[in-house]
Design a protein around this nucleic acid. Structure first.
Lengths: 195, 195
DNA sequence: GTCTATAGTCGGATAGAC
DNA sequence: GTCTATCCGACTATAGAC
């Protein structure tokens, strides 16, 4: 008696669908949603033409799935640094020193310039969720350091904005040192730098 | 004897060309370069079909002209705030308090996510020039406040990054208050806020 | 569920009259 | 220098066999 039950009866894991989402995530990170064609997604995923439209009614539906996942993965990664053990200043320092591909930019932040994403509320939603969650994580850390809730919140926005703006500067200048400098500046301003 | 000499013999001012550049600047600010079609530029400028390709060999050449002007105008505006009279702290405070359309984003910064712009070095150049000039302006102000050159430079990157990242946050959250909070945070961190 | 083939639309660019 | 008319190719999506 062979156990033919795969993983879950209601929500089975589909390989083609999965490959499509992964390929879309990669291409969106490289080019954005607007500039990524269904054809490119099919080529990278190795899936045939009509299969995309079997799993997703339209390009937008694929984008929604891929963006949700990217936002979720990015937030999970930030959480692993900001909400784990260690002192609050140590966790913030670790977050600001985390390895980043400056010239690639923020997978989520870059989407705020994508016309397709910004035109559709259901595509914007993952962006809002990501940054709300990220700012909240940083706010808690700053609050633990003794700031008032209002001050912690303002400065959390500043910290997250510095990271995002650092990406923008690095890409505009073609120099990853721009992000490094911006982050070093905010570390000293927050009193996190060693003498 | 009518003076038929217009403005300059070598570089005359062409009305159609001018209208094309203006329309392109507007549309790039709203949608980006990649998402803006020649047709849209023609419609907004009120110029006829073939005239675009009379003045500009390709879409890229129009983009280069428009981006250069936008970068130049943006830098001039920043200079008028950061390099004018008043105390150094007053000028920096004025720059950070300048009116901004947070939900529209930075006309220059948003281009760092545009595939067409990033793929062409001649289109990226205006971005690099703008941010180099802007960071230099802020660096001078901070240097006047007594910071070492290295510290002033790092913090200048942080200030400019906060503005750029503030735009990203405001757009992602659909709330212009995000930029305000990020800027208030950096003002307090820089000791520019009144008690 | 996956594929090949193809339809419809629009973007980028050109030709050539005025 | 400016316009109208038009070509070519690519992108989004569908049809229908296996």
């Amino acid at each position: 008696m062979t156990t033919t039950v795969p993983d879950a009866p209601t929500e089975t894991t589909r390989p083609a669908r999965e490959r499509l989402v992964r390929a879309a995530q990669e291409l969106y990170g490289e080019q954005g949603v607007d500039a990524t064609t269904p054809r490119e997604v099919l080529e990278r995923s190795g899936v045939g033409q009509g299969s995309l439209y079997h799993h997703f009614p339209s390009k937008t539906d694929l984008a929604r799935t891929a963006l949700r996942r990217t936002a979720q993965e990015s937030l999970d990664e930030a959480r692993s640094t900001l909400a784990n053990g260690g002192s609050s200043s140590g966790r913030l320092r670790a977050y600001l020193a985390a390895p980043r591909d400056a010239l690639a930019g923020s997978a989520v932040g870059r989407m705020t310039s994508d016309p397709v994403v910004m035109a559709d509320p259901s595509l914007r939603e993952p962006l809002a969720e990501y940054f709300t969650g990220l700012v909240d994580l940083v706010t808690v850390v700053l609050w633990e350091q003794g700031y008032t809730e209002a001050q912690a919140h303002d400065r959390a926005f500043t910290v997250v904005a510095t990271v995002q703006g650092g990406y923008v500067l690095a890409r505009a200048l073609g120099d990853d040192a721009a992000l490094e400098r911006a982050l070093r500046g905010v570390r000293t301003l927050c009193g996190l730098e060693e003498a």
